[in-house]
Design a protein around this nucleic acid. Structure first.
Lengths: 223, 223
DNA sequence: CGAAGTATTGAGACGTCTCAAAATTAGTGG
DNA sequence: CCACTAATTTTGAGACGTCTCAATACTTCG
């Protein structure tokens, strides 16, 4: 489903630097572009590559047989995803918007990890931070109210993609709902409620650009 | 809160064998006993040790400020837990029943992993399998009905601690509820419903010994 | 400007929770 | 081993929060 293949662009230092050892060019194969809504890899597909978001955003999710969807994570610029231990992916990954990813062969990464303790360490660190995110998300999904979930989501996204105080969400209300274990209507109602209470404003004529007005009070809605 | 400290018993082969490299005696310090209901370590406490359940069962959980609890995992005989990357635990761990654990110094484990790629590999494998469990649990917590959750729980426990077709659950209905993101009443109702439908029977005069009558149909309740 | 996709809002349905009581089981000391 | 008490589990009835279905509004894009 990729639209285009490019050679490796000679390393933008900022981008490479912020990702540490794993971003060293020796692993990087190439960049791919995926159009909005297309699948990057499917659940149970062999995990041949590891991916890093260069531009855009990715959702990874699991489905029940009747179509119910749970998004386990959003991958934003700089994030590495598709890291598996076994041979198969445990999630489906899709481009939320037009997205460019950089990819590396999983096996070559593993071979290097065999010999380089630093790389092995970094693999473990990344996996652990994924685990930590999942653990926090279990608490959210199992025990928080809809308002708490949406507040927690806003604070997470604020920390990950806020620029100049403005959050430009790449994902739809349905995506947010499937991430938070709610329906899109409930998410919309919670956002309206937070807007009424003065916790946030919508910017311009879109509903996906959000300014948080009171992070401190919003955090209290969480726990 | 430990009740007793014992020397290392000279390795029961079955037990050590089934855990692979990490169970090699070089890491093992000693065994501790924790009485039913006591804390093994607390959230945000420094993670000095890694633990393995020798006898008994452990719950690890997070709390919200108002007391709502989410159990992230149950640790049964043979399971390793308390494995953290950072310096602090991300969960509280408590003995569900009187429990014996074997423990190893986290730092010594990490030092060995620096030099032994097999150990490093095994650490990664364990962390990944924890991650996989958490990912499946997010799907359950976010998208499954109460009946589906309880059915999934029974199948998980059936696979992990069934002996001779009988499951002797160490945990209370409240523990199950906090694991599944439900209330204990809802868990009890779901179990009654599954009993009425012939999917399971209660054994003896306790409600914690369960026999599954139809794993196949039970699995279909899941997805 | 029209059409498709996305978001909001409303009203009622439904599933799980809350509160309460009864039944059962486990724990304790005689 | 038996009473007695505490803890756990079951069951019921009603409350509440989120979901479902439907209509409307808004945004994007041709």
């Amino acid at each position: 489903m990729f639209v285009n293949v490019n050679a490796i662009p000679g390393g933008r230092p900022k981008f490479l630097g912020e990702q540490g050892t794993l971003a060293r060019t020796q692993f990087i194969l190439s960049e791919f572009k995926y159009a909005r809504g297309t699948e990057i890899f499917g659940e149970t597909e062999p995990a041949e590559y590891v991916y890093q978001v260069v531009e855009g955003a990715v959702r990874s999710y699991k489905l029940l047989s009747d179509g119910r969807r749970q998004i386990g994570a959003f991958h934003l610029i700089g994030d590495i995803f598709g890291l598996e231990n076994g041979a198969a992916h445990r999630f489906t990954a899709e481009a939320i918007v037009d997205t460019t990813v950089r990819l590396a062969k999983r096996l070559s990464l593993e071979h290097v990890a065999e010999e380089d303790a630093l790389v092995a360490r970094e693999l473990l660190t990344m996996t652990t931070s994924n685990l930590q995110h999942a653990e926090n998300h279990m608490l959210l999904l199992g025990r928080k109210t809809s308002l708490e979930r949406v507040a927690a989501f806003l604070l997470e996204m604020d920390g990950r993609l806020s620029a100049a105080g403005v959050m430009a969400l790449p994902m739809s209300r349905r995506d947010i709902a499937d991430y938070l274990g709610l329906t899109l209507e409930t998410v919309s109602r919670a956002l309206s409620c937070l807007h009424e209470k003065g916790f946030l404003d919508f910017l311009g004529q879109t509903q996906r650009q959000i300014v948080l007005r009171n992070r401190f009070e919003l955090a209290k809605l969480d726990s």
